[in-house]
Amino acid sequence: MLLTELTQILFAQVATPNVVANKLEFSFWDILFHGGAFAKIVMATVLALGVFSVYIFFERFFYIRRMTTKTDENFMNYIEDFIRDGKIEAAADYCKTQNSPESRILEKGISRLGRPVSDIVSAMESQAQIEVANMEKNLNLLAVVPSIAPMLGLLGTVIGMIIAFFDLSHAEGAFSPKTLSEGIYTALGQTAVGLAVAIPANFFYNILLTRIDKFVLRTQNVSGEFLDLINKPL
C-alpha cells in the first residue's frame, strides 16, 4: 500500500512539470504589448513606421517603374530622322506624345536648338534634375525610418528596464525572478521590433536609390546621344 502511494506521488511530480511546460507557448505578439501604456505607445509607433515604410516603398517603386518603362525603343531613331529632315517642331511634338522623363528632357534640348550648346546642355540638365526630384519624392521620409525605429525601440527598452528595476526595488517579501524577467523580455522586445522595422526600411530605401541611379545613367546616355546627333555633320 505504501509503495503504491509513493509511486503515485512520483508520477504526479513528474507529470506536473510536463503539464505546465505544455501550457507555456511563446507568443511574440503578447510580449510586444505586455508592458505598460508607454511601452504600448512606443510599440504602436514603431509598427506604424513599418507600415508607412512599406507604403512609401511600393508607391515609389511602381511610380519609378512606370516612368522608366514609357519610352519607345525606337525613340532616338525617330528623333534623329526628324532632326535630319529639319522637322524640329515635329520632333518636339513627338516628344510630347511620349510623355516620359527622357522625352521631356530631349524636348527641352530640341526647344533650344539654334542656341549655343551650353544653353542646350543647361536646359536638359535642369529638366533631368526635375525628373529625378519627382522620383525622389518622399524618399527622405523613408530614409528617416531606419534611424527613428531603432531609437524608439532602444528608448522603449531603457524605459522598460527602469520600470522593471523600479518594481523590483519596491517589491516586498521573497524575491521572484518573474518580476525582473517579465520587464526584461518586454523591454528587449521593443529593441527587436525597432530593428525588425529598420532593416527592411533601409533595404527598401537602397532599392529605390539603385533604380533612380540607373535612371540617371540612362538620361546621361540619352543626352549624350542627342548632343552627338546635333553636332554630327549632315
Results as ranks from 00 to 15, higher is better:
residue 191 T to L: 07
residue 178 K to P: 05
residue 224 G to K: 09
residue 219 T to A: 15
residue 187 A to D: 13
residue 234 L to R: 15
residue 175 F to V: 15
residue 177 P to M: 00
residue 220 Q to Y: 06
residue 191 T to P: 00
residue 216 V to E: 08
residue 234 L to W: 12
residue 196 A to S: 14
residue 160 G to K: 07
residue 147 S to D: 02
residue 153 G to Q: 09
residue 191 T to S: 11
residue 150 P to D: 07
residue 149 A to T: 00
residue 217 L to I: 13
residue 190 Q to K: 10
residue 159 I to Q: 11
residue 192 A to K: 03
residue 197 V to S: 02
residue 214 K to E: 08
residue 149 A to F: 08
residue 220 Q to T: 11
residue 195 L to N: 08
residue 182 E to A: 13
residue 182 E to M: 11
residue 173 G to S: 05
residue 159 I to H: 08
residue 191 T to H: 08
residue 185 Y to L: 07
residue 150 P to A: 07
residue 169 S to T: 09
residue 151 M to V: 09
residue 165 F to A: 03
residue 167 D to T: 06
residue 197 V to H: 01
residue 154 L to N: 07
residue 166 F to C: 03
residue 230 I to R: 07
residue 170 H to D: 00
residue 210 T to G: 15
residue 209 L to D: 11
residue 233 P to Y: 11
residue 232 K to H: 15
residue 218 R to T: 04
residue 168 L to Q: 12
residue 231 N to V: 03
residue 153 G to L: 09
residue 166 F to K: 14
residue 167 D to L: 03
residue 165 F to M: 06
residue 200 P to W: 04
residue 153 G to E: 00
residue 222 V to T: 13
residue 198 A to K: 04
residue 200 P to C: 06
residue 163 I to P: 03
residue 220 Q to D: 14
residue 186 T to D: 08
residue 155 L to P: 06
residue 199 I to M: 02
residue 204 F to C: 04
residue 204 F to K: 01
residue 178 K to L: 12
residue 177 P to T: 06
residue 146 P to K: 01
residue 225 E to G: 00
residue 186 T to M: 04
residue 165 F to T: 02
residue 204 F to Q: 01
residue 228 D to T: 11
residue 230 I to E: 07
residue 201 A to L: 07
residue 202 N to K: 05
residue 220 Q to R: 13
residue 194 G to N: 03
residue 219 T to I: 15
residue 164 A to G: 03
residue 180 L to D: 02
residue 161 M to C: 09
residue 171 A to W: 11
residue 181 S to Y: 07
residue 189 G to I: 05
residue 198 A to M: 04
residue 214 K to N: 11
residue 154 L to S: 06
residue 150 P to M: 02
residue 232 K to T: 15
residue 205 Y to L: 15
residue 191 T to M: 10
residue 162 I to D: 09
residue 193 V to W: 05
residue 218 R to W: 01
residue 205 Y to E: 13
residue 184 I to E: 04
residue 178 K to V: 14
residue 225 E to K: 14
residue 168 L to I: 10
residue 156 G to Y: 13
residue 198 A to R: 04
residue 158 V to T: 05
residue 148 I to A: 15
residue 165 F to Y: 09
residue 209 L to C: 07
residue 198 A to I: 02
residue 208 L to K: 03
residue 198 A to Q: 01
residue 220 Q to G: 12
residue 210 T to N: 15
residue 196 A to C: 11
residue 155 L to C: 04
residue 169 S to N: 15
residue 191 T to I: 06
residue 149 A to D: 12
residue 216 V to G: 00
